[in-house]
Every structure is written in C-alpha cells, then in structure tokens.
C-alpha cells in the first residue's frame, strides 16, 4: 500500500530524514518508535505533504501512485489520513461543517456522489458514539476549547468519518489519560484493523501498543530506521530504553 524507498527530507534547511525505507501492506499495523528528535514527526509531515518539508531524495508511492507528486488534499482523497500531534483550531467552523466539506471534497475528487446532510449526520453521530465523544462537540468549532484528550478523540472521530485506507497517527497518545488512551486505542482497532486498511503509528512510548497490537515495530534514530521487529521489540524498548540501539547516542 505504502512504499517508501530511501526517503531523505529536510526542514528549515536541516536534513532530518536520512534514507528511510519502509513497506506497509494492507492489513498491517506498523509502529515507529524512537527518541525525541529522531525525525518521527518529520516523517508524518513529509508523507502528509506539509509545506516546508522538502524531499531531497528517495521516493514514496501510495497504491502505486507517486505520493510525493500529490497536493496534501489529493493525498487525503487518495486515502491517506494524518492524525495530528497538535490538532489545529479553526474558529467559527463547526466540526460537522468541516468534516462534511472535507468528506464531500474527497468524494468529489474520487468521482463519488456527495453525501446529503442527513446521511452525513447519521455517520458522524455513530462515530462520535463509538468513540465516546459528546454529540454536542460535533457542533462546536473545530478543536476550539477542546481539552487535549477531546482533541485526540476528535481526531479519531474524523478518522472514522473519513474512513481512510492508511492512517498515519503522529503521537496520538501524547497527553492522554488512561481512559482517553483506551478510547483512542479502541478507535484505531475498530476503524482501521481491517484487511484492506493499514496504520502507521508514531509513538514515543509503548503504552498505546498495549491497546493497539502492532504487527511490526521500527526504531527510528537520527533519520534512519535502525531496527525492525515484531511487537516484542516495543517491550524490549520499554525495558531497556533507546540507549544501546544502534545510532542512538547514549
């Protein structure tokens, strides 16, 4: 589904990603772990197409198409969802309005009919219920006045409504209490653990992986994947820390 080959990227003139190669197939959940400054968020932003993140070498394809050639909204329409570490506030625009416009823009790009207001609200309510987000929150402006936990749950509701093929979740677990963490984990499993979907979880801690069992774990250090393994690698990292992993300074 996603094929990354020797990806190099820089931001603000500084090289961050220094040759990442990674293949994610349908039905797989990958976790990328690593210390602060390893390049985890840069990987997410580069794949999402954020301006200011420049690819200097390498390639990335999504379902065979050149991902790096696409505009951010084209990547979204192609089925790539980016869960933000810091979801952005948009004053005056309700969650419902935002998502309906987003979803219908994606559908249009894919040549599908737009959803009616009633159809959309049904979907939105169902997703909110499943993630324990108060329906009233759907009417509130996007992320404005939301607590950290609410913002992350809201990201999951958005993911549920948009129903992407591939979700790249950037530190979705950061700043969550245990209940919110469970809800987010439940959301990822319900929405994304399907044979035709895949997830790239970016996290600093192993905690989220208790709720979302990854098929593969990769360690990112200084812009490169220095180790890959199964779910057990996460536990090892939790016990031993990142020190001692190749490429991680003591």
């Amino acid at each position: 589904m996603l094929n990354i080959t020797n990806l190099h990227a820089e931001t603000a003139g500084k090289a961050i990603l220094k040759g990442i190669t990674l293949a994610i197939n349908p039905g797989e959940i990958h976790a990328i772990m690593g210390p602060n400054g390893a390049g985890k968020s840069t990987l997410a932003y580069t794949l999402g197409g954020r301006p200011g993140y420049e690819v200097t070498a390498g390639s990335a394809t999504f379902d065979g198409a050149d991902l790096l050639e696409m505009e951010p909204h084209e990547r979204a329409a192609a089925g790539l969802f980016l869960g933000f570490q810091y979801p952005v506030e948009i004053p005056g625009v309700s969650n419902l309005q935002f998502l309906r416009e987003a979803l219908n823009a994606q559908r249009k790009q894919r040549g599908e009919e737009p959803l009616s207001g009633a159809e959309f609200i049904k979907i939105a309510r169902a997703e909110a219920t499943s993630l324990g987000l108060d329906h009233e929150m759907l009417k509130r402006p996007v992320n404005v006045g939301f607590s950290g936990g609410e913002k992350k749950r809201n990201e999951m509701v958005q993911m549920g409504i948009i129903a992407p093929k591939l979700a790249i979740l950037d530190e979705t677990d950061s700043g969550l209490d245990i209940d919110a963490l469970k809800a987010v984990g439940h959301g990822i499993n319900t929405i994304m653990r399907k044979p035709d979907k895949a997830v790239l979880l970016i996290t600093h801690y192993q905690r989220l992986l208790d709720y979302v069992k990854p098929d593969f774990v990769h360690v990112l250090a200084d812009g490169r994947i220095v180790r890959s393994g199964g779910a057990e690698l996460a536990h090892e990292l939790e016990r031993e820390g990142y020190v001692g992993i190749d490429g991680v300074a003591a």
């Binding site: 999402g48 197409g49 954020r50 301006p51 200011g52 505009e71 951010p72 909204h73 990547r75 979204a76 329409a77 969802f81 980016l82 933000f84 979801p87 952005v88 506030e89 948009i90 004053p91 005056g92 625009v93 309005q97 935002f98 998502l99 416009e101 987003a102 979803l103 823009a105 994606q106 790009q109 402006p141 996007v142 958005q158 948009i162």
Partner: peptide, 30 residues
C-alpha cells in the same frame, strides 16, 4: 490564516481555495 490551519484543512481533503473559503467563513461566522 495560519499555515497550520491551511495544512490541517487540506490534509482532511480540501483544496487550498476551499480551505481558505472555509476558514474565512469561520472567521465571519458571528
């Protein structure tokens, strides 16, 4: 309009123009 807002809306599938229109409408909501 912040670059963050623009990228966030585009990542959810809106093209740049639709994203700007949406954010402007939010600004004028009241």
């Amino acid at each position: 309009i912040s670059d963050d807002q623009l990228f966030y809306a585009m990542q959810r599938g809106l093209d740049a123009e639709a994203a700007v229109a949406l954010i402007v409408n939010g600004f004028a909501r009241e």
